[in-house]
Design a protein around this nucleic acid. Structure first.
Lengths: 336, 336
DNA sequence: ATTCTTTACGAAAACGTTTTCACAGTTTTT
DNA sequence: AAAAACTGTGAAAACGTTTTCGTAAAGAAT
């Protein structure tokens, strides 16, 4: 508990606390010579300013919060990577919160953040989030807030997303062109914006090609992996089973692979698959997985950049940015 | 910027600031009735205590820092998951820092943390960390510090690791029993504790089975993926190429898969592979990858638990815990 | 009736910064 | 020579808590 502070420094230097503080912040009020002395002493004593005193006084935390459903997820891991990159450049600290897809967690996390612990918040909603009161409440405190990927649909707010509708459409059309007649769509939760957009694209592609839109082929999965495996197995073992699967999230494609291994269903001969995914090993799978790959790292970068723009010049904060990045469809063997 | 604080609350209630503060902290000095009034008003006005004022006064941040090389990495993502779980239970906040395997980053991050921003630090060293002055310096400030997985080898400090030597030994012996005569070892950096331990096991297994220990088969890779691909390609295309690969980290096994695809080398017929890995898709690869799987989530949990034990009762802090968890070897087709 | 406890509260100091303001001393302008 | 401007510094307030200490009022014990 060495705790060397401005007082100690000032005594050591024979200066006042305020002069030392100013010198360290490179104020014009302090002579060059004094600054040099102060800096040298600070270095020598390994002075580190107390961040709480500083934040309290300046009403700035130099910290942002990132609230995401899970971290053991390629998409979010990459997004965080992008966020951290920008934050580090700006000299900001990053607090990470995992909701684990639980609305309760999301709500209490957001509530805590209203205390002023952070200067801005980046968030991707959890699968259960229907009610957004907690978010409008946070918004009203005036703290900058940017949503990415999973956004609220009935709220005026800055967002960073991908072209989910088009991707859903293209993915489905890709399966149709590969010969699929009966395409199932696996999704996470009907509350999620990404589910809506991607499924809209799916439905419209089916319509365009005069294929039946069958609610029985639109499977809403759960947050439990075992349950999902069962749901998918049931889907793939019924007599009118689909010949194509469009998975709106990576983990459901992986589950499908496991089920196919289990019930000896051949991909792509008997079932073609395409999925949203950021798997680095997509091309090494048996068979290699066709993907819609989101620019996750860029999403993180863009979100953070947007957030910092809002933090830095609140004056121009009236306009609401909605950034949309493009995903890319990568054909591989699972849909051949 | 509503910023409703104790002063505001106290005025609203006709009480003193101190009484309100005490009521909120459920002090015995305050009557039950008053507490109820205060709580109700705090709820009504949506009061959130200023964390900086609180931290400044109490000299507690209720925050820990996690310093890791990268996040887009299954092992670290899972470890963070475990850390967050424990932190959340304890009501702590988690600051995450990525060093991106750069010593400079690690050093400056650690230096910043000396200001008292956090109550404890969890860290896994970056590949370039040879000098540990910054760490002893942090340690000397008295702030609890726990290393996990990649630990300093010449420092007395609490650590959470896996049985790296045994795992390296077993992995190598596994390849030998599968018929390999010439086994290469791919590692990240000769500074890393995990490299040393895993390679010691590798070398001892070779010795036990009277195989030649050949430095030319011990490849130290870089932090650049393209370079690694070249190194591996060179290794696998020379005329006395190895018939087995032991990868000490996941990404090098993946690179090896790519190279084998590239140069049409058949796994496992021409080359058998086993690797440390937390890939969820290991069994879905072509061919499925034999792995040594570390209990990454548990490592995170154990590390955080240990850290909190140190934070909570500094009195007993003289003893130095070194927790070692077991990894499991999972045979799959890449080493058949 | 007096002392002593107990209960419930308030005043004020402290945490370590940042920032406003005041003020000597020096230099420049009139 | 007086006034004005500039330089470099220090005193003190402020940020919003927490905590120590003091104390008035009420009850209990002598």
């Amino acid at each position: 508990m060495s705790s060397i502070n401005l007082k100690r420094l000032s005594e050591e230097l024979g200066l006042s606390i305020s002069s030392v503080s100013k010198a360290l912040r490179d104020s014009y009020e302090i002579s060059a010579e004094t600054k040099k002395r102060v800096l040298a002493m600070a270095e020598k004593l390994n002075y580190q300013p107390n961040p709480f005193a500083s934040s309290l006084r300046r009403k700035k935390s130099i910290t942002i919060a990132v609230v995401i459903p899970e971290i053991a997820n390629n998409f979010f891991a990459l997004a965080i990577d992008g966020i951290q990159l920008v934050a580090q450049q700006k000299g900001y600290h990053v607090l990470t919160y995992l909701t684990h897809e639980s609305f309760k967690n999301e709500e209490s996390t957001i509530k805590h953040l209203q205390g002023g612990r952070v200067d801005g918040v980046l968030i991707s909603l959890c699968r259960d989030t229907e009610n957004i009161k907690h978010l409008s409440s946070l918004h009203e405190t005036g703290i900058p807030l940017v949503f990415f990927d999973r956004i609220p649909e009935n709220m005026e707010c800055p967002t960073v997303t991908t072209d989910d509708y088009e991707s859903g459409f293209n993915a489905t059309e890709h399966l149709i062109k590969a010969g699929c007649k009966k395409i199932a769509c696996l999704s996470l939760s009907s509350f999620l914006s990404i589910t809506h957009k991607r499924m809209e694209g799916y439905v419209d592609a089916l319509k365009k090609h005069k294929l039946k839109v069958d609610p029985k082929l639109m499977i809403e999965c759960t947050n439990n992996n075992a349950t999902n495996l069962e749901l998918i197995k049931k889907l793939l073992t019924r007599k009118d089973r689909p010949d194509g699967i469009f998975a709106t999230v990576e983990k459901l494609a992986i589950s499908t692979y496991y089920v196919c291994n289990d019930i000896k269903l051949k991909i792509p001969q008997q079932l073609k698959i395409i999925s949203f995914s950021n798997l680095r090993t997509a091309s090494l799978l048996a068979p290699s997985l066709s993907t819609i790959t989101q620019p996750a790292f860029e999403i993180g970068k863009e979100s953070a950049s947007l957030l910092f723009r809002m933090i830095e010049k609140k004056t121009f904060g009236n306009r609401i940015d909605r950034i949309v990045l493009k995903s890319s469809l990568i054909e591989r063997n699972s849909s051949k």
